[in-house]
Simulated assay, not measured.
Amino acid sequence: MISTSVTGTGAGAFASARRINQSLTAAIEKRALTWMAERMPPWVTSDGLTAVGLCAQIGAGLFYALSRYHKAGLIGVIVCIALNWFGDSMDGTLARARNQQRPRYGFYVDHIVDIFGATALMCGLGCSGFVHWPVAAAMLMGFLLLSAESYLATYTLSCFHMSQGIFGPTEIRILLCIGTLALLRSPYATVMGHRLLLFDLGGTIATVAMFAMAIAIAVRHTVELYRQEPLR
Protein backbone atom coordinates (compact mmCIF):
# COMPACT_ATOMS: atom_id res chain seq x y z
CA MET A 1 0.00 0.00 0.00
CA ILE A 2 1.29 3.47 -0.82
CA SER A 3 0.09 4.76 2.51
CA THR A 4 -2.37 3.16 4.83
CA SER A 5 -2.79 6.41 6.73
CA VAL A 6 -6.05 8.05 5.91
CA THR A 7 -7.07 11.57 6.60
CA GLY A 8 -10.19 13.55 6.98
CA THR A 9 -10.40 17.17 5.99
CA GLY A 10 -11.78 19.63 8.47
CA ALA A 11 -11.55 23.38 8.96
CA GLY A 12 -7.92 23.57 7.95
CA ALA A 13 -7.18 20.33 9.81
CA PHE A 14 -5.75 17.15 8.36
CA ALA A 15 -5.64 14.35 10.94
CA SER A 16 -4.50 10.83 10.11
CA ALA A 17 -6.80 7.93 10.93
CA ARG A 18 -5.67 5.25 13.34
CA ARG A 19 -4.47 2.12 11.55
CA ILE A 20 -5.44 -1.25 13.03
CA ASN A 21 -3.98 -4.56 11.87
CA GLN A 22 -4.62 -7.60 14.08
CA SER A 23 -3.99 -10.28 11.46
CA LEU A 24 -1.98 -13.41 12.20
CA THR A 25 1.04 -12.29 10.20
CA ALA A 26 0.90 -8.55 11.02
CA ALA A 27 3.83 -8.36 13.45
CA ILE A 28 6.33 -10.46 11.50
CA GLU A 29 5.23 -8.89 8.21
CA LYS A 30 5.78 -5.39 9.55
CA ARG A 31 9.31 -6.25 10.68
CA ALA A 32 10.15 -7.89 7.35
CA LEU A 33 8.77 -5.00 5.29
CA THR A 34 10.60 -2.40 7.38
CA TRP A 35 13.87 -4.33 7.04
CA MET A 36 13.47 -4.49 3.25
CA ALA A 37 12.38 -0.84 2.95
CA GLU A 38 15.49 0.35 4.75
CA ARG A 39 17.64 -1.50 2.21
CA MET A 40 15.68 -0.68 -0.93
CA PRO A 41 17.76 1.00 -3.69
CA PRO A 42 16.91 4.65 -4.42
CA TRP A 43 15.51 3.91 -7.89
CA VAL A 44 12.67 1.89 -6.36
CA THR A 45 9.72 4.19 -5.66
CA SER A 46 6.37 3.81 -3.92
CA ASP A 47 4.49 4.54 -7.14
CA GLY A 48 6.57 1.94 -8.96
CA LEU A 49 5.76 -0.65 -6.31
CA THR A 50 2.06 0.17 -6.57
CA ALA A 51 2.27 -0.42 -10.33
CA VAL A 52 4.02 -3.75 -9.72
CA GLY A 53 1.25 -4.79 -7.33
CA LEU A 54 -1.50 -3.90 -9.80
CA CYS A 55 0.21 -5.52 -12.80
CA ALA A 56 0.86 -8.66 -10.75
CA GLN A 57 -2.80 -8.94 -9.71
CA ILE A 58 -3.93 -8.48 -13.30
CA GLY A 59 -1.31 -11.06 -14.27
CA ALA A 60 -2.72 -13.51 -11.73
CA GLY A 61 -6.13 -13.12 -13.37
CA LEU A 62 -4.65 -13.72 -16.82
CA PHE A 63 -2.80 -16.82 -15.63
CA TYR A 64 -6.00 -18.16 -14.05
CA ALA A 65 -7.72 -17.73 -17.43
CA LEU A 66 -4.82 -19.45 -19.22
CA SER A 67 -4.89 -22.34 -16.73
CA ARG A 68 -8.15 -23.41 -18.35
CA TYR A 69 -6.00 -24.71 -21.19
CA HIS A 70 -2.86 -25.72 -19.27
CA LYS A 71 -2.44 -26.19 -15.54
CA ALA A 72 1.05 -24.72 -15.71
CA GLY A 73 -0.71 -21.35 -15.65
CA LEU A 74 -1.43 -21.97 -11.97
CA ILE A 75 2.28 -21.62 -11.20
CA GLY A 76 2.16 -18.20 -12.84
CA VAL A 77 -0.79 -17.31 -10.60
CA ILE A 78 1.23 -18.08 -7.46
CA VAL A 79 4.22 -16.07 -8.67
CA CYS A 80 1.96 -13.12 -9.46
CA ILE A 81 0.25 -13.30 -6.06
CA ALA A 82 3.68 -13.16 -4.40
CA LEU A 83 4.63 -10.13 -6.53
CA ASN A 84 1.32 -8.50 -5.68
CA TRP A 85 2.04 -8.93 -1.98
CA PHE A 86 5.46 -7.36 -2.43
CA GLY A 87 4.23 -4.35 -4.37
CA ASP A 88 1.02 -3.77 -2.44
CA SER A 89 2.59 -4.21 0.99
CA MET A 90 5.92 -2.50 0.38
CA ASP A 91 4.83 0.77 -1.24
CA GLY A 92 3.40 2.32 1.93
CA THR A 93 6.23 1.00 4.08
CA LEU A 94 8.78 2.52 1.71
CA ALA A 95 6.98 5.87 1.75
CA ARG A 96 7.02 5.92 5.55
CA ALA A 97 10.66 4.81 5.73
CA ARG A 98 11.66 7.70 3.44
CA ASN A 99 9.24 10.15 5.07
CA GLN A 100 7.47 10.63 1.74
CA GLN A 101 3.88 10.00 2.83
CA ARG A 102 1.07 11.41 0.72
CA PRO A 103 -1.92 10.35 2.84
CA ARG A 104 -4.84 11.35 0.61
CA TYR A 105 -3.14 10.42 -2.67
CA GLY A 106 -1.83 7.18 -1.18
CA PHE A 107 -5.15 6.08 0.28
CA TYR A 108 -7.09 6.83 -2.89
CA VAL A 109 -4.64 5.26 -5.34
CA ASP A 110 -3.99 2.24 -3.14
CA HIS A 111 -7.63 1.32 -2.82
CA ILE A 112 -8.77 2.10 -6.34
CA VAL A 113 -5.91 -0.15 -7.47
CA ASP A 114 -7.19 -2.86 -5.11
CA ILE A 115 -10.67 -2.62 -6.64
CA PHE A 116 -9.44 -2.90 -10.23
CA GLY A 117 -6.98 -5.64 -9.29
CA ALA A 118 -9.57 -7.72 -7.45
CA THR A 119 -11.97 -7.37 -10.39
CA ALA A 120 -9.28 -8.60 -12.80
CA LEU A 121 -8.41 -11.50 -10.49
CA MET A 122 -12.01 -12.68 -10.10
CA CYS A 123 -12.72 -12.31 -13.82
CA GLY A 124 -9.67 -14.44 -14.59
CA LEU A 125 -10.73 -17.01 -12.01
CA GLY A 126 -14.21 -17.11 -13.53
CA CYS A 127 -12.66 -17.79 -16.95
CA SER A 128 -10.49 -20.59 -15.58
CA GLY A 129 -13.22 -23.20 -15.33
CA PHE A 130 -12.08 -23.98 -11.78
CA VAL A 131 -15.02 -22.05 -10.34
CA HIS A 132 -18.48 -21.22 -11.64
CA TRP A 133 -19.07 -17.59 -12.63
CA PRO A 134 -21.80 -16.94 -10.01
CA VAL A 135 -19.38 -17.94 -7.24
CA ALA A 136 -16.59 -15.74 -8.63
CA ALA A 137 -19.03 -12.82 -8.92
CA ALA A 138 -20.29 -13.39 -5.37
CA MET A 139 -16.72 -13.36 -4.03
CA LEU A 140 -16.06 -10.07 -5.80
CA MET A 141 -19.29 -8.62 -4.38
CA GLY A 142 -18.28 -9.68 -0.87
CA PHE A 143 -14.86 -8.06 -1.27
CA LEU A 144 -16.34 -4.81 -2.61
CA LEU A 145 -18.93 -4.72 0.18
CA LEU A 146 -16.26 -5.11 2.88
CA SER A 147 -14.07 -2.56 1.12
CA ALA A 148 -16.86 0.01 0.95
CA GLU A 149 -17.64 -0.46 4.64
CA SER A 150 -13.98 -0.04 5.52
CA TYR A 151 -13.66 3.19 3.53
CA LEU A 152 -16.83 4.64 5.07
CA ALA A 153 -15.70 3.69 8.56
CA THR A 154 -12.31 5.28 7.94
CA TYR A 155 -13.95 8.58 7.01
CA THR A 156 -16.58 8.61 9.75
CA LEU A 157 -14.70 6.97 12.63
CA SER A 158 -11.10 7.97 11.79
CA CYS A 159 -10.11 4.34 12.18
CA PHE A 160 -8.76 2.25 9.30
CA HIS A 161 -9.06 -1.51 9.82
CA MET A 162 -6.46 -3.26 7.70
CA SER A 163 -7.76 -6.66 8.79
CA GLN A 164 -11.02 -8.23 9.90
CA GLY A 165 -10.22 -10.24 13.00
CA ILE A 166 -7.15 -12.37 12.38
CA PHE A 167 -7.54 -12.23 8.58
CA GLY A 168 -5.96 -9.54 6.47
CA PRO A 169 -4.83 -9.30 2.83
CA THR A 170 -1.73 -11.42 3.47
CA GLU A 171 -3.71 -14.27 5.02
CA ILE A 172 -6.13 -14.19 2.07
CA ARG A 173 -3.20 -14.38 -0.37
CA ILE A 174 -1.76 -17.36 1.54
CA LEU A 175 -5.09 -19.21 1.43
CA LEU A 176 -5.45 -18.43 -2.27
CA CYS A 177 -1.96 -19.81 -2.97
CA ILE A 178 -2.71 -22.98 -1.00
CA GLY A 179 -5.96 -23.46 -2.90
CA THR A 180 -4.22 -22.82 -6.23
CA LEU A 181 -1.56 -25.41 -5.40
CA ALA A 182 -4.33 -27.89 -4.58
CA LEU A 183 -5.77 -27.33 -8.06
CA LEU A 184 -2.58 -28.78 -9.53
CA ARG A 185 -3.55 -32.08 -7.94
CA SER A 186 -7.30 -31.97 -8.50
CA PRO A 187 -9.91 -29.24 -9.05
CA TYR A 188 -12.50 -31.21 -7.08
CA ALA A 189 -13.43 -31.78 -3.45
CA THR A 190 -15.79 -34.40 -2.04
CA VAL A 191 -18.21 -33.31 0.68
CA MET A 192 -20.67 -35.81 2.16
CA GLY A 193 -20.42 -37.94 -0.96
CA HIS A 194 -20.94 -35.02 -3.34
CA ARG A 195 -18.22 -34.04 -5.80
CA LEU A 196 -17.81 -30.29 -6.02
CA LEU A 197 -15.33 -27.89 -7.57
CA LEU A 198 -12.83 -27.06 -4.83
CA PHE A 199 -13.02 -23.32 -5.52
CA ASP A 200 -16.83 -23.42 -5.63
CA LEU A 201 -16.74 -24.82 -2.10
CA GLY A 202 -14.04 -22.46 -0.84
CA GLY A 203 -15.54 -19.48 -2.66
CA THR A 204 -18.99 -20.11 -1.22
CA ILE A 205 -17.59 -20.33 2.31
CA ALA A 206 -15.54 -17.17 1.76
CA THR A 207 -18.55 -15.29 0.36
CA VAL A 208 -20.81 -16.23 3.26
CA ALA A 209 -18.08 -15.19 5.71
CA MET A 210 -17.53 -11.84 3.95
CA PHE A 211 -21.23 -10.99 3.84
CA ALA A 212 -21.67 -11.98 7.49
CA MET A 213 -18.68 -9.86 8.52
CA ALA A 214 -19.90 -6.89 6.50
CA ILE A 215 -23.33 -7.02 8.15
CA ALA A 216 -21.92 -7.46 11.66
CA ILE A 217 -19.37 -4.65 11.25
CA ALA A 218 -21.95 -2.32 9.68
CA VAL A 219 -24.31 -2.85 12.62
CA ARG A 220 -21.50 -2.28 15.14
CA HIS A 221 -20.31 0.90 13.47
CA THR A 222 -23.87 2.21 13.06
CA VAL A 223 -24.47 1.75 16.78
CA GLU A 224 -21.14 3.41 17.59
CA LEU A 225 -21.91 6.40 15.38
CA TYR A 226 -25.43 6.71 16.81
CA ARG A 227 -23.99 6.85 20.30
CA GLN A 228 -21.48 9.50 19.24
CA GLU A 229 -24.20 11.57 17.56
CA PRO A 230 -27.43 11.00 19.51
CA LEU A 231 -30.61 12.93 18.75
CA ARG A 232 -31.00 15.86 21.09
Rank of each mutant, 00 (worst) to 15 (best):
P103D: 03
F63V: 03
P103E: 06
A56S: 11
M122N: 07
C55M: 15
A138H: 01
V135A: 00
Q100C: 05
F130V: 12
A72T: 14
P103I: 08
H132L: 12
C55N: 12
R68V: 01
A60W: 06
F130R: 00
D91V: 03
V77N: 00
G59M: 03
V109C: 10
R98G: 02
L121F: 15
V113Y: 10
G76I: 01
R104A: 14
L140T: 08
G59F: 04
S150H: 10
D110N: 10
N84P: 03
L140E: 11
G106Y: 06
L125A: 12
F143C: 05
L83Q: 04
Q100L: 12
I81K: 05
F86S: 01
C123Y: 15
C123R: 09
F116D: 00
V79G: 13
V135M: 09
A56Y: 00
I75S: 11
A118T: 13
P103G: 02
C80N: 06
A60R: 02
T93Y: 05
L146T: 14
L121N: 06
I58A: 08
A148L: 15
F130I: 06
A118L: 10
C127M: 15
Q101F: 05
S67N: 00
H111S: 02
H132Y: 14
A97E: 12
M141Q: 09
V77T: 05
Q57K: 08
A120T: 07
A136E: 04
W85K: 03
F63H: 01
S150D: 13
I115P: 07
L145E: 07
S67H: 00
P103C: 00
L145V: 11
R102P: 11
I78F: 09
F86D: 03
G61K: 01
F116Q: 08
V109R: 09
R98Q: 07
L83M: 11
A97H: 08
G126R: 00
D47S: 10
D114H: 04
V109G: 03
F143Q: 05
G126A: 13
V52K: 02
S150L: 14
Y69T: 09
G124T: 03
P134G: 00
M139Q: 12
V52I: 14
L121C: 07
Q57H: 10
Q57N: 13
N84I: 04
T119R: 00
R68E: 09
A72G: 14
G129Y: 11
G117W: 00
L121A: 10
W85G: 02
H111W: 05
D110P: 03
P103T: 06
L74Q: 04
A95S: 11
V131G: 04
D88P: 05
L54I: 10
I75M: 08
T119Y: 10
D47L: 12
G73K: 02
L121P: 05
Y108V: 15
L140S: 09
D110S: 01
A56L: 07
Y105K: 09
A97F: 04
W85S: 11
S150A: 14
T93R: 04
G117I: 01
S67Q: 01
A95M: 05
